[in-house]
């Protein structure tokens, strides 16, 4: 039994659906669900409404507290209903869809790079990871700290960097550890002032708590840490941030912008006659899982 309809994150015509279409079996129809808000409920609703179809979802991993090494396969996505876990599909092993597009192996194949170009790109990517490691640790700390609070504040900051003002990134000089610490404190104070949640009754203590998390996560994001070493930043860092962090190098490689780079990789994927799902072990595994998925009764 194969999945008939696979729901994914992202907008119609977006990166998610265009990439996934080249990975999954042809018999599977893909539908973008837009925002991840209420993703699980929307799948459950569709399963109820369209009995007989095999329906599953695929969502981003986002930031979490698990820094164990990648297994190169998607994780099972289970959702608790009446104290029972229900399979909804899978969670990407990497933070978001861009993490796959910027993978050096994908870039090499999609852009048909020569070896020296591939090496230059690999270095640019690693430099970017190094540049954003403290900022990434701060973003992870925010995500972990606010995970259970009712209104999650943004786990990023900086200037709007795309045409639609939906992506933000700090100035390069504000990416250092000290800048990130002070920004975290500021975000906690602002959040407590605006929302006044009972969980933050003592802002000073909360500032100290989030800095503790930040200080715990930070070493894992440094070059020798679990979230960085062995190219693990491709799994744990935000792909969009890694992309934006190497924008100057991308320009020197003749890509006018990170968006332009992404679009060219996507075009390479869409045009190649190769079996794209073989490019990464996780893609191959996802394809197998989708082809053999058994619907829960």
């Amino acid at each position: 039994m194969s999945v008939n309809i696979l729901y994914c994150e992202g907008a119609p015509g977006g990166i998610d659906i265009r990439l996934i279409l080249n990975i999954v079996p042809k018999s599977c129809k893909i539908e973008p669900i837009g925002s991840k808000q209420g993703f699980a409920q929307r799948i459950l609703g569709t399963i109820d409404a369209r009995a007989g179809l095999t329906i599953a979802g695929l969502k981003d991993r986002d930031f979490d507290d698990n820094d164990s090494p990648p297994k190169h396969e998607p994780r099972n996505w289970t959702f608790k209903i009446n104290n029972q876990g229900k399979n909804l599909g899978w969670i990407w092993e990497r933070k978001e869809i861009e993490n796959y597009l910027i993978d050096p192996e994908v870039v090499r194949r999609a852009l048909r790079q020569e070896a020296h170009q591939a090496n230059e790109y690999r270095k640019a990517l690693e430099d970017s990871a190094n540049k954003i490691h403290a900022y990434t640790a701060a973003r992870i700390a925010l995500s972990l700290y606010f995970k259970k609070l009712p209104t999650l504040p943004q786990n990023y900051w900086g200037e709007p960097r795309n045409e639609t003002n939906t992506y933000f990134f700090p100035k390069d000089k504000s990416l250092k550890q000290a800048d990130c610490s002070s920004k975290l404190k500021k975000i906690i104070t602002e959040y407590a002032r605006k929302i006044d949640p009972p969980e933050i009754s003592d802002p000073k203590k909360s500032q100290s708590n989030i800095l503790n998390i930040f200080n715990t996560v930070l070493p894992t994001c440094q070059p020798s840490g679990n979230r960085f070493k062995d190219q693990n930043y491709l799994t744990f860092f935000a792909g969009k941030d890694l992309l934006y962090g190497m924008r100057d190098q991308l320009k020197s490689f003749k890509f006018s912008s990170p968006d332009n780079f992404c679009e060219k990789i996507l075009k390479g994927i869409e045009e190649t006659e190769e079996d794209v799902w073989l490019w990464l072990p996780e893609w191959q595994r996802l394809r197998e899982l989708i082809a053999s998925y058994e619907r829960e009764k």
Partner: peptide, 13 residues
Amino acid sequence: SEAVSNVIGKNNI
């Protein structure tokens, strides 16, 4: 078809 329009990037529509 929505199935078709979903897979085309907005710059190409």
